[in-house]
Design a protein around this nucleic acid. Structure first.
Length: 246
DNA sequence: TAGGCCATCTGGTCCT
DNA sequence: AGGACCAGATGGCCTA
């Protein structure tokens, strides 16, 4: 079931960028007459944005890519070399992004065995968000309990059920949230998480949360109630930062 | 075969 | 000016 592993290995996210760039660059310098080259295709006719374009169209496109000054100064090959350089940078950027995404996957409470399908990007992000919210909630609960037990009023040291109002999950919840939630349903059975077998996710079949049969996020308080200070981030589709308004 | 996921290319915009 | 970032387009691979 680990098709993704082979898939990843067979299609690396960052294939020898320098080699690709250099070989393409050599081609462009030594008598290459196409408008643009790419890692996926060597001939201009196979370039996504140039399919079906005539030579004249390609030339016009190349001209549009350059400023008026560039049109005078840059040859076609030079323009192509610039394009390849930009493409290479973009590949590297996306590769770095994927590395960061892998790092995020590694710290998620999700089984990493070979039989577990790799989380998709969107699943990783959604899972991470809920995990953060869950940990925040747990931390708040811990703080509240500590203040109750050791606080000034400390008239009762016993565990009061009401202090666990939002901790409806089984297990010694208040004690060690992270540990107790390493197997928390914030992980399994999400619609976006493709567990190898339904009903028996990577963390076991005991989890009844996170959209069993619905693909929807867990409706329980632990998963759904964000701390006040992060409530503004509750939207899955986060708007762009105000400073990044375009 | 349709749909999901992904890598890549590309052009535009913003930032340094 | 060059680089970073972003989003749209495109095509490949894989699974149900």
């Amino acid at each position: 079931m680990d098709s993704d592993t082979s898939r990843v290995s067979s299609r690396p996210s960052s294939p020898e960028v320098d080699d690709i760039f250099m070989s393409a660059l050599k081609k462009s310098v030594h008598g290459f007459s196409g408008a643009v080259s790419s890692t996926q295709s060597d001939s201009p006719s196979e370039i996504p944005g140039l399919r079906g374009l005539s030579a004249a169209d390609e030339e016009a496109l190349a001209l549009r890519m350059a400023s008026k000054k560039d049109r005078k100064l840059l040859s076609e090959n030079e323009l192509q070399a610039i394009r390849l350089k930009i493409n290479s940078r973009e590949r590297k950027r996306m590769h770095d992004l994927n590395v960061a995404m892998d790092g995020l996957r590694e710290v998620m409470p999700y089984a990493h065995g070979p039989s577990v399908r790799k989380l998709s990007k969107i699943a990783t992000l959604l899972l991470a968000r809920n995990y953060i919210l869950m940990l925040s909630n747990s931390l708040e609960e811990m703080k509240r309990l500590v203040s109750e037990i050791y606080g000034s009023s400390g008239h009762h040291g016993g565990f009061h059920p009401s202090t666990c109002g939002t901790m409806t999950h089984a297990g010694p919840v208040p004690g060690h949230p992270a540990a107790s939630h390493a197997s928390h349903p914030a992980v399994p059975h999400h619609g976006l998480l493709k567990a190898p077998t339904a009903g028996a996710g990577p963390l076991g079949s005991s989890f009844q949360h996170w959209g069993v049969g619905t693909g929807m996020p867990c409706p329980c308080s632990m998963c759904q109630v964000p701390p006040p200070h992060v409530s503004s981030m509750s939207s899955v589709t986060m708007p762009r930062l105000a400073s990044d308004s375009k």
